[in-house]
Simulated assay, not measured.
Amino acid sequence: MVSLLAMAATALTGCASGKASDDTAGQATATAGSGTTSGAKSTGKNSVYVIGGKPDDPFWSAIKRGGEDAAKLVKAGGGKVTFLGPQNYDNLGPDAAKLTLTAISQNPSAILVPDWVPENQDAAIKQAIAKGIQVFIYNSGGADAAERVGAMKYIGSDDYEAGKAGGIKFAEVGAKNILCVNTVPGSANQEARCKGVKDGATAKGSSSKQLPLPSSNFGNPSAVTQAIKGALLKDTSIDAVVTIGVGDADSAAAAIKQAGADSKVELGTFDLSQSQLDRIKAGSQLFAIDQQPYLQGFYAVSIANQYLSYGVLPPQNPLLTGPLLVTKDNVGAAIAGTRAGVR
């Protein structure tokens, strides 16, 4: 088991076409049983809506896997869990708000939603709460977001502290000029990650800057590779690159190689995949920061269901699922979980 970062002891996007109907573009539904959507108050059968990311995003597939496992308990009570997902990440805040309105229109017992872009999403989240729907913020936003909108709790990682840990780790191995590649600029959790990297590096005498790329580049390996390669060739003082997700990390690895910088540029990323773990094991990647997305999905669904059914609620807020730093020293313990689809 990888060790919990001491500093964390004390998180993408989303929406479909915005149509408030059951045929929302990009929507994926996992039914955990029969029952109405009128809420626990009138039927005792819980209807939980989970707003998440693209179905082909490996990070979100791990969250959904956790949510689906927890949904088995909802099914046992005669309820259901519905997952709403986007087609792309091009219009982050407004689309996420539309997905929330879609969920509200189904009169669920609870809505689980990341607060990616507060200025676009908070009004819709508050509308759900005003209708008596229980709302849990997960993955992005933190306890501050939950308090600001009046949600029950935040479940997820602390993105700023995760980034800070990465910045410190880079500095500890001698990196002086770190590039944080952000393919979802404006997203609260991604901005917090890059800010954390910068602050962690600065605290140890190093520096960091951000490379913001158009969100349309997310999921476009060729575009991301070329952008990172160009940055490395333009500024040869860059000696470390960190990416906000696993797909971008694969692109960064290719960019470092194409730029002929393998021997001098360290690589790190947020989140896990088999390719990240393979590179860490081989010594060609320094670290991956795991926020344990499976736990985010599992805890969010199960805690909402327990609260709706029995009125029980863990007192911790935030309820942290990470960060956990995976390095060559502990990578072996993380590989089996990734192969099982839960990390």
Rank of each mutant, 00 (worst) to 15 (best):
residue 4 L to H: 13
residue 6 A to Y: 13
residue 8 A to P: 01
residue 9 A to K: 15
residue 12 L to G: 11
residue 15 C to V: 07
residue 16 A to W: 12
residue 18 G to T: 08
residue 19 K to E: 10
residue 21 S to N: 12
residue 21 S to V: 03
residue 22 D to C: 06
residue 27 Q to A: 10
residue 30 A to Y: 14
residue 33 G to K: 01
residue 37 T to H: 15
residue 37 T to D: 08
residue 38 S to H: 07
residue 38 S to G: 13
residue 41 K to R: 13
residue 45 K to F: 06
residue 52 G to Q: 06
residue 55 P to T: 15
residue 56 D to A: 12
residue 57 D to W: 00
residue 64 K to Q: 09
residue 68 E to V: 05
residue 69 D to L: 01
residue 72 K to T: 11
residue 74 V to I: 13
residue 74 V to T: 12
residue 78 G to A: 09
residue 79 G to R: 06
residue 82 T to F: 12
residue 86 P to G: 11
residue 92 L to M: 15
residue 92 L to R: 05
residue 102 T to W: 01
residue 103 A to C: 02
residue 103 A to R: 05
residue 109 S to W: 02
residue 110 A to S: 15
residue 115 D to R: 15
residue 117 V to D: 13
residue 118 P to G: 13
residue 127 Q to S: 10
residue 129 I to C: 14
residue 132 G to L: 08
residue 136 F to A: 07
residue 141 G to H: 07
residue 153 K to E: 09
residue 153 K to I: 06
residue 155 I to S: 03
residue 156 G to A: 08
residue 159 D to N: 15
residue 159 D to V: 01
residue 161 E to W: 07
residue 162 A to P: 03
residue 162 A to M: 11
residue 163 G to V: 00
residue 164 K to Q: 12
residue 168 I to L: 08
residue 173 V to N: 07
residue 174 G to K: 11
residue 175 A to N: 11
residue 178 I to Y: 01
residue 180 C to N: 07
residue 181 V to P: 01
residue 184 V to P: 00
residue 185 P to T: 11
residue 187 S to Y: 02
residue 188 A to E: 09
residue 189 N to K: 01
residue 192 A to P: 06
residue 193 R to K: 11
residue 198 K to C: 00
residue 198 K to N: 06
residue 199 D to Y: 04
residue 200 G to N: 12
residue 204 K to D: 14
residue 205 G to A: 10
residue 205 G to K: 14
residue 206 S to Y: 09
residue 209 K to P: 04
residue 213 L to R: 01
residue 219 G to V: 09
residue 227 A to I: 01
residue 232 L to H: 03
residue 233 L to H: 00
residue 234 K to I: 03
residue 246 V to F: 00
residue 247 G to M: 08
residue 253 A to G: 02
residue 260 G to S: 04
residue 269 T to F: 00
residue 270 F to S: 04
residue 271 D to F: 03
residue 272 L to Q: 07
residue 273 S to C: 06
residue 273 S to A: 12
residue 274 Q to A: 12
residue 276 Q to L: 05
residue 277 L to I: 04
residue 280 I to D: 03
residue 280 I to Q: 04
residue 281 K to P: 00
residue 287 F to E: 03
residue 288 A to E: 06
residue 288 A to S: 15
residue 289 I to K: 00
residue 291 Q to K: 07
residue 301 V to C: 02
residue 305 N to P: 00
residue 306 Q to Y: 07
residue 307 Y to G: 08
residue 314 P to M: 12
residue 323 P to F: 14
residue 324 L to N: 14
residue 327 T to V: 11
residue 328 K to R: 14
residue 335 I to L: 00
residue 336 A to K: 11
